[in-house]
């Protein structure tokens, strides 16, 4: 089976983000990682390949340092990769999907495409849907369990309030992965060495016919979110602490009826 996994190169979730100028951030000293949700997609794709055979291709639309992240995905067992190089961390979701689609299509007919449920940088949760729409494929996002068999996929998705839906779709399809789907493996040293020799094909948006100036969403401002400061600590016996807590929540904060 030919499986593509879309992987985004994002700042580490533990990194401190320093806003620079109106719409940028200082990225020089920040560690970048594979978007955590995408790792569930990589693991799922590699385990399907291991049981059913085939090939796993990583596709990343990202900046010039993205190959570091791509090597990590290759070390998890993917076979090769395509890197669509862009200048900004913030490419419009529709254009990202167009770039992914064109890169995948040029490589060959996909039987299964994984993405993460969303990325932890722009948190826009749209790529799997837009990619599926451009291909005319079915899509299920936030998939926490998956069975792929006989040309069909059964995907389990959390639909809120502890409820889960099981959805059926025909292949080829797009699956947006989330936690619960599997436990992503830690690559071993030989896998990391092997990954260094795997192919990463580089290309640009213009090679794929994607026009960056067609973006319909513009980032006009980025501001840091002020952190809360030290809490007001409630003192006294447990009884006193709880009594005071209920009082402040009701009377001062008015968040309890």
């Amino acid at each position: 089976m030919k499986i593509f996994v879309c992987v985004k190169h994002v700042p580490d979730t533990a990194a401190t983000i320093k806003v620079a100028g109106d719409t940028g951030f200082e990225d020089a000293d920040i560690k970048f990682i594979a978007n955590p949700y995408d790792e569930f997609g990589i693991e799922e794709a590699v385990s399907i390949k291991e049981s059913q055979g085939g090939e796993v291709v990583i596709v990343t639309v990202g900046g010039e340092s993205a190959p570091d992240t791509i090597r990590g995905a290759l070390a998890m067992g993917a076979d090769r990769a395509i890197h669509v190089e862009i200048d900004s961390q913030f490419l419009d979701a529709e254009l990202t999907a167009q770039a992914l689609k064109a890169a995948i299509e040029a490589d060959g007919a996909p039987e299964l495409i994984f993405t993460g449920k969303g990325s932890v940088d722009t948190e826009s949760f749209q790529t799997p849907y837009r990619l599926a729409r451009l291909f005319g494929m079915p899509v299920v996002n936030e998939v926490s369990a998956l069975e792929v068999n006989g040309g069909k996929a059964l995907a389990t998705r959390e639909s809120g309030a502890g409820e889960k839906q099981v959805l059926e779709m025909a292949l080829p399809c797009v699956v947006g992965a989330t936690k619960g789907l599997n436990e992503p493996r830690y690559p071993k040293f030989p896998d990391i060495m092997k990954a260094k020799k795997k192919e990463i094909k580089a290309m640009g948006l213009s090679d794929l016919g994607v026009d960056e100036s067609a973006a319909k969403v513009t980032l006009v401002k980025m501001e840091p979110v002020p952190e809360r400061s030290q809490a007001r600590m409630l003192e006294g016996s447990v009884d006193d602490q709880v009594t005071e807590l209920i009082r402040v929540l009701k009377e001062d904060e008015k968040v309890l009826g």
Partner: peptide, 28 residues
């Protein structure tokens, strides 16, 4: 286009604010 999970919207101006980087910044 779609802006997801906004914390503020201005329908007349077609602008919206939302979290970026796991809530560390707010983007307009």
């Amino acid at each position: 286009p779609l802006v997801s999970d906004c914390v503020e919207v201005n329908v007349a101006d077609k602008t919206a604010k939302k979290s970026h980087f796991s809530g560390k910044t707010v983007a307009t």
